[in-house]
Protein backbone atom coordinates (compact mmCIF):
# COMPACT_ATOMS: atom_id res chain seq x y z
CA UNK A 1 0.00 0.00 0.00
CA UNK A 2 1.45 3.29 -1.00
CA UNK A 3 1.30 6.56 0.83
CA UNK A 4 -1.93 8.39 0.40
CA UNK A 5 -3.18 11.68 1.70
CA UNK A 6 -3.76 12.31 5.36
CA UNK A 7 -7.51 12.41 4.81
CA UNK A 8 -9.55 10.22 4.60
CA UNK A 9 -7.89 7.90 7.11
CA UNK A 10 -7.73 4.18 6.51
CA UNK A 11 -9.59 1.72 8.71
CA UNK A 12 -6.53 1.13 10.91
CA UNK A 13 -6.06 4.85 11.32
CA UNK A 14 -9.72 5.25 12.28
CA UNK A 15 -9.32 2.60 14.97
CA UNK A 16 -6.14 4.27 16.20
CA UNK A 17 -7.85 7.65 16.26
CA UNK A 18 -10.78 6.32 18.27
CA UNK A 19 -8.46 4.64 20.75
CA UNK A 20 -6.42 7.82 20.88
CA UNK A 21 -9.50 9.87 21.71
CA UNK A 22 -10.31 7.45 24.54
CA UNK A 23 -6.72 7.56 25.81
CA UNK A 24 -6.46 11.35 25.69
CA UNK A 25 -9.89 11.92 27.24
CA UNK A 26 -9.26 9.54 30.12
CA UNK A 27 -5.79 11.04 30.62
CA UNK A 28 -7.47 14.44 30.84
CA UNK A 29 -9.81 13.01 33.46
CA UNK A 30 -6.82 11.65 35.38
CA UNK A 31 -5.37 15.12 35.74
CA UNK A 32 -8.65 16.91 36.39
CA UNK A 33 -10.83 14.62 38.49
CA UNK A 34 -11.47 15.54 42.10
CA UNK A 35 -11.45 11.99 43.44
CA UNK A 36 -8.03 10.46 43.71
CA UNK A 37 -9.22 6.86 43.41
CA UNK A 38 -11.08 7.76 40.23
CA UNK A 39 -7.84 9.19 38.86
CA UNK A 40 -6.18 5.80 39.29
CA UNK A 41 -9.12 4.06 37.62
CA UNK A 42 -9.15 6.47 34.68
CA UNK A 43 -5.45 5.74 34.38
CA UNK A 44 -6.42 2.11 33.75
CA UNK A 45 -8.67 3.21 30.88
CA UNK A 46 -5.93 5.39 29.41
CA UNK A 47 -3.32 2.65 29.61
CA UNK A 48 -5.72 0.11 28.13
CA UNK A 49 -6.51 2.36 25.19
CA UNK A 50 -2.78 2.87 24.68
CA UNK A 51 -2.32 -0.89 24.64
CA UNK A 52 -4.95 -0.98 21.89
CA UNK A 53 -2.94 1.64 20.00
CA UNK A 54 0.13 -0.59 20.27
CA UNK A 55 -1.90 -3.48 18.92
CA UNK A 56 -3.00 -1.42 15.93
CA UNK A 57 0.63 -0.46 15.37
CA UNK A 58 1.47 -4.22 15.22
CA UNK A 59 3.48 -4.04 18.45
CA UNK A 60 1.61 -6.87 20.08
CA UNK A 61 4.23 -7.94 22.60
CA UNK A 62 4.61 -4.38 23.82
CA UNK A 63 0.82 -4.19 24.09
CA UNK A 64 0.64 -7.23 26.35
CA UNK A 65 3.56 -6.02 28.43
CA UNK A 66 1.73 -2.72 28.76
CA UNK A 67 -1.39 -4.53 30.00
CA UNK A 68 0.59 -6.72 32.38
CA UNK A 69 2.89 -4.12 33.90
CA UNK A 70 1.00 -0.85 33.64
CA UNK A 71 -2.60 -1.94 34.04
CA UNK A 72 -1.68 -4.79 36.32
CA UNK A 73 1.23 -3.74 38.47
CA UNK A 74 1.65 0.02 38.29
CA UNK A 75 -1.98 0.90 38.93
CA UNK A 76 -2.18 -1.56 41.82
CA UNK A 77 0.98 0.01 43.24
CA UNK A 78 -0.58 3.45 42.88
CA UNK A 79 -3.75 2.28 44.60
CA UNK A 80 -1.64 0.91 47.44
CA UNK A 81 0.07 4.27 47.69
CA UNK A 82 -3.29 6.03 47.80
CA UNK A 83 -4.46 3.67 50.51
CA UNK A 84 -1.32 3.93 52.62
CA UNK A 85 -1.26 7.73 52.55
CA UNK A 86 -4.84 7.73 53.86
CA UNK A 87 -6.24 9.69 50.97
CA UNK A 88 -9.93 10.53 51.25
CA UNK A 89 -12.25 8.31 49.29
CA UNK A 90 -14.80 10.96 48.37
CA UNK A 91 -14.20 14.11 46.38
CA UNK A 92 -11.57 16.33 47.90
CA UNK A 93 -11.13 19.96 47.04
CA UNK A 94 -7.40 20.30 47.60
CA UNK A 95 -6.02 18.02 44.93
CA UNK A 96 -4.90 20.93 42.78
CA UNK A 97 -2.29 23.39 43.86
CA UNK A 98 -2.54 27.10 43.33
CA UNK A 99 -0.69 27.28 40.05
CA UNK A 100 -3.41 25.65 37.99
CA UNK A 101 -3.71 28.49 35.47
CA UNK A 102 0.02 28.68 34.92
CA UNK A 103 0.15 24.90 34.51
CA UNK A 104 -2.60 25.05 31.89
CA UNK A 105 -0.71 27.78 30.03
CA UNK A 106 2.52 25.79 30.07
CA UNK A 107 0.74 22.60 28.98
CA UNK A 108 -1.06 24.36 26.13
CA UNK A 109 2.20 25.94 24.99
CA UNK A 110 3.91 22.54 25.10
CA UNK A 111 1.08 20.97 23.14
CA UNK A 112 1.13 23.75 20.56
CA UNK A 113 4.88 23.53 20.02
CA UNK A 114 4.96 19.73 19.91
CA UNK A 115 1.94 19.28 17.66
CA UNK A 116 3.13 21.98 15.27
CA UNK A 117 6.60 20.50 15.06
CA UNK A 118 5.39 16.93 14.67
CA UNK A 119 2.80 17.74 12.04
CA UNK A 120 5.26 19.89 10.16
CA UNK A 121 8.01 17.33 10.30
CA UNK A 122 6.17 14.08 9.68
CA UNK A 123 3.31 15.05 7.43
CA UNK A 124 4.54 12.78 4.64
CA UNK A 125 5.83 9.95 6.80
CA UNK A 126 4.00 6.75 6.09
CA UNK A 127 4.64 3.50 7.92
CA UNK A 128 3.39 0.34 6.25
CA UNK A 129 2.02 -2.03 8.86
CA UNK A 130 3.48 -5.52 8.59
CA UNK A 131 1.67 -8.03 10.84
CA UNK A 132 3.97 -9.96 13.15
CA UNK A 133 6.75 -7.40 13.26
CA UNK A 134 6.30 -6.86 16.97
CA UNK A 135 5.53 -10.45 17.88
CA UNK A 136 7.23 -12.01 20.88
CA UNK A 137 9.52 -14.09 18.68
CA UNK A 138 10.92 -11.19 16.69
CA UNK A 139 11.19 -8.95 19.72
CA UNK A 140 12.78 -11.65 21.86
CA UNK A 141 15.35 -12.38 19.18
CA UNK A 142 16.10 -8.67 18.96
CA UNK A 143 16.51 -8.25 22.70
CA UNK A 144 18.52 -11.38 23.40
CA UNK A 145 20.69 -11.05 20.32
CA UNK A 146 21.39 -7.34 20.09
CA UNK A 147 20.33 -5.77 23.36
CA UNK A 148 21.60 -8.29 25.89
CA UNK A 149 23.87 -5.86 27.71
CA UNK A 150 21.14 -3.26 28.39
CA UNK A 151 18.86 -6.11 29.41
CA UNK A 152 21.34 -7.34 31.99
CA UNK A 153 22.01 -3.81 33.20
CA UNK A 154 18.27 -3.44 33.59
CA UNK A 155 18.14 -6.48 35.84
CA UNK A 156 20.78 -4.91 38.07
CA UNK A 157 18.77 -1.69 38.08
CA UNK A 158 15.64 -3.56 39.12
CA UNK A 159 17.52 -5.21 41.96
CA UNK A 160 18.86 -1.85 43.09
CA UNK A 161 15.39 -0.32 42.96
CA UNK A 162 13.98 -3.23 44.94
CA UNK A 163 16.60 -2.92 47.65
CA UNK A 164 16.25 0.85 47.68
CA UNK A 165 12.49 0.72 48.09
CA UNK A 166 12.82 -1.77 50.94
CA UNK A 167 15.48 0.28 52.71
CA UNK A 168 13.54 3.51 52.34
CA UNK A 169 10.23 2.11 53.52
CA UNK A 170 11.46 0.07 56.45
CA UNK A 171 11.50 1.91 59.74
CA UNK A 172 13.86 -0.29 61.68
CA UNK A 173 16.85 0.55 59.51
CA UNK A 174 18.27 3.73 60.90
CA UNK A 175 20.77 6.11 59.43
CA UNK A 176 24.38 6.49 60.57
CA UNK A 177 23.57 8.74 63.51
Amino acid sequence: MTATGLWPPTAQEVVLLLLGVVAAASALLVVTTRQIVHAALWLVVSFGALAGCYLVLTAEFVAWVQVLIYVGAVVVLLLFGIMLTRAPIGPSADLNSGNKVMAAIVALATAAVLVTTVVDGFRQAYAPLVPGRGAAKALGAGIFRNWVLPFEALSVLLLAALIGAIVISRTDIGGKD
Partner: peptide, 28 residues
Protein backbone atom coordinates in the same frame (compact mmCIF):
# COMPACT_ATOMS: atom_id res chain seq x y z
CA UNK B 1 -0.53 4.18 8.92
CA UNK B 2 0.59 7.77 8.86
CA UNK B 3 3.11 8.50 11.57
CA UNK B 4 1.39 11.81 12.27
CA UNK B 5 -1.55 10.24 14.11
CA UNK B 6 0.35 8.40 16.87
CA UNK B 7 2.91 11.21 17.08
CA UNK B 8 0.23 13.85 17.63
CA UNK B 9 -1.51 11.60 20.15
CA UNK B 10 1.79 11.19 21.99
CA UNK B 11 2.32 14.95 22.00
CA UNK B 12 -1.15 15.51 23.46
CA UNK B 13 -0.63 12.85 26.13
CA UNK B 14 2.72 14.38 27.04
CA UNK B 15 1.12 17.81 27.40
CA UNK B 16 -1.61 16.39 29.62
CA UNK B 17 1.11 14.83 31.74
CA UNK B 18 2.92 18.18 31.95
CA UNK B 19 -0.29 19.81 33.14
CA UNK B 20 -0.79 17.10 35.75
CA UNK B 21 2.75 17.39 37.08
CA UNK B 22 2.48 21.15 37.39
CA UNK B 23 -1.09 21.49 38.63
CA UNK B 24 -1.56 18.58 41.00
CA UNK B 25 -0.81 18.84 44.69
CA UNK B 26 -1.01 15.23 45.78
CA UNK B 27 2.29 13.48 45.18
CA UNK B 28 0.66 10.28 43.97
Amino acid sequence: MHVVYPAVLAALLFSIGVYGVLARRNTI
